[in-house]
């Protein structure tokens, strides 16, 4: 990096004049941060322009200063807790005492500097803090101590709380998992009980529908109560339905398909109740149809079929 060349490129002047792009601005700031020579040159340029500007003054209207300062609020000085810094600034204030308007806090600060007079001047301090060899108003100390203590306590309790909260959340999550596990187990048991009683019932005819070419792995059992003609389905294996599709059960009666209703989208691990079957049904089949079912089966989308 040739610093001299960079300085002579004129970029610094443009920077000081404020005519550089934001990108160049960042670049100059970065360069001046790295190279003291560049920073010095920048400061020299700024300083020269500043002095040039100060040679060209137009006094603003005299009333302006008063109007302006009336809108400004310097109260924050009294609230500054950094008393030490305030004291270090004291010499300037004292020296200029007669010429400048006194700040409201002035006397307090002086009281702090001269402890001998402190009791007379600053009664607040003595009353609040009896006996101690003290310079600062005690309320300030208490306030600072109290606020630090409060902040610490607050931080600690917030930390604790967040820990407790986290643990709670964890427990809740674990509970939810346990509960859902339990539900699964319970449902499974109910389902198996139901199945067992269904299979044992002598009036029930079980029709096994096996997978066709489309889905050889599929297998569904239809449990047909020959007394009531109620039909229940036990889906042992069927692929999940694509969006907008639903399985539909059919029976074949007199060589024609008869609608037996659509399968619930949640068809696994439960017994599905379908429509009543015609006693003359010779076969059961399931096709994939649009959601809600179709009036007649789509033969290409037949998944399983079983003869009675």
């Amino acid at each position: 990096m040739n610093i001299q060349a960079y300085i002579e490129s004129g970029i610094l002047e443009e920077y000081v004049l404020g005519t550089v792009s934001p990108q160049e601005k960042q670049e100059v700031e970065c360069m001046s941060h790295i190279y003291p020579e560049i920073k010095e040159e920048l400061m020299r340029t700024e300083s020269a322009l500043e002095q040039y500007a100060l040679k060209h003054q137009t006094p603003p209207p005299a009333f302006l200063k008063e109007t302006l300062f009336a809108q400004m609020n310097f109260d924050e000085v009294t609230e500054e807790p950094e008393s030490t810094e305030a004291i270090s600034a004291e010499p300037t204030l004292v020296q200029s005492d007669d010429n400048i308007k006194k700040l409201p806090v002035d006397s307090d600060f002086r009281a702090e500097v001269q402890p001998g007079q402190a009791r007379e001047v600053n009664t607040d301090a003595t009353i609040a803090d009896s006996g101690a060899t003290v310079i600062y108003p005690s309320w300030a100390k208490f306030a600072v101590a109290a606020s630090i203590l409060f902040a610490a306590l607050f931080g600690w309790s917030a930390l604790q709380m967040s820990g407790v909260k986290k643990q709670n959340e964890q427990y809740a999550a674990e509970m939810a998992v346990l509960k859902s596990d339990m539900d699964v187990v319970k449902k499974d048991a109910e389902y198996k009980d139901a199945l067992a009683s269904l299979y044992r019932n002598p009036h029930h005819k079980v029709v096994r529908m096996a997978g066709l070419e489309k889905s050889p792995q599929s297998i569904v059992a239809a449990i047909w109560d020959t007394k009531t003609n109620d039909v229940l389905l036990d889906v042992q294996n069927l692929p999940a339905t694509p969006a907008g599709k639903q399985y539909q059960l059919w029976t074949i009666v007199d060589g024609k398909p008869v609608d037996m209703g659509v399968l619930d989208q949640e068809f696994s691990h439960k017994v599905l109740k379908m429509k009543q079957a015609n006693p003359g049904a010779v076969a059961f089949a399931i096709t994939l149809e649009k959601t809600g079912g179709s009036p007649s089966p789509t033969m290409e989308d037949m998944f399983v079929m079983g003869k009675v």
Binding site: Q57, L68, I100
Partner: peptide
């Protein structure tokens, strides 16, 4: 500090 702002004004407002 008020004195500082007064200084700033006196010095640079022109």
């Amino acid at each position: 500090e008020r004195t500082a702002f007064e200084f700033l004004y006196d010095h640079y407002s022109g």
